[in-house]
Amino acid sequence: MPKSQVRKKKVYTPPTDVRPTASAATRKPSPVWLPILAVSLIAAGIAWLVVYYLSEQAYPVAAWGYWNLAVGFGAMVASLIVLSRWR
């Protein structure tokens, strides 16, 4: 029985407009302090809110009133913004 012919495939090269640029390939990893800062902000925000509720709105800053909630949630939102820069 005769042997079938083997076809050689051409090597695929993507078009130049689809190829990633050299700058995307050389992106550096995130610094070590970035995830540490993000976790610290999350912990500080949660701790701020817990202290606020457990102290019956007397601490951390009694004069701020409900703005203490904005500080706690603001710290957590800031951590999300920091984490968006993590590679």
Rank of each mutant, 00 (worst) to 15 (best):
1 M>D: 14
1 M>V: 13
3 K>H: 10
6 V>G: 08
6 V>L: 15
7 R>Q: 11
8 K>T: 14
8 K>Y: 08
9 K>G: 10
9 K>R: 11
10 K>A: 12
10 K>I: 12
10 K>F: 11
11 V>Q: 13
12 Y>C: 00
14 P>K: 09
15 P>Y: 15
15 P>K: 15
18 V>W: 13
18 V>N: 09
19 R>W: 01
19 R>N: 12
19 R>G: 08
20 P>L: 15
20 P>T: 10
20 P>G: 10
21 T>H: 10
21 T>V: 06
21 T>G: 11
22 A>M: 13
26 T>P: 05
27 R>D: 07
27 R>T: 15
27 R>H: 09
27 R>S: 10
28 K>M: 13
29 P>V: 05
29 P>R: 08
29 P>N: 07
30 S>T: 11
32 V>N: 13
33 W>D: 00
33 W>M: 00
33 W>V: 05
34 L>T: 02
35 P>F: 14
35 P>R: 01
36 I>Q: 07
38 A>F: 12
40 S>Y: 06
41 L>E: 01
42 I>E: 05
43 A>T: 06
46 I>K: 05
47 A>L: 10
48 W>Q: 02
49 L>T: 00
50 V>Y: 13
50 V>L: 07
50 V>R: 06
51 V>L: 09
51 V>T: 07
52 Y>N: 00
53 Y>M: 09
53 Y>R: 02
54 L>H: 09
54 L>D: 09
55 S>I: 00
56 E>Q: 13
58 A>N: 12
58 A>P: 03
59 Y>A: 15
61 V>M: 08
61 V>G: 04
62 A>T: 07
63 A>Q: 11
63 A>R: 13
64 W>Q: 03
64 W>Y: 07
65 G>S: 04
65 G>I: 03
66 Y>S: 12
67 W>F: 14
67 W>P: 01
68 N>K: 00
68 N>H: 02
69 L>D: 06
69 L>G: 04
70 A>L: 07
70 A>S: 11
70 A>N: 12
73 F>Q: 05
73 F>V: 06
76 M>E: 06
77 V>A: 15
77 V>W: 08
80 L>N: 08
81 I>L: 15
81 I>Y: 14
81 I>F: 15
82 V>K: 03
83 L>Q: 02
83 L>M: 12
83 L>W: 05
84 S>G: 04
84 S>E: 10
85 R>A: 14
85 R>P: 03
86 W>D: 04
86 W>A: 03
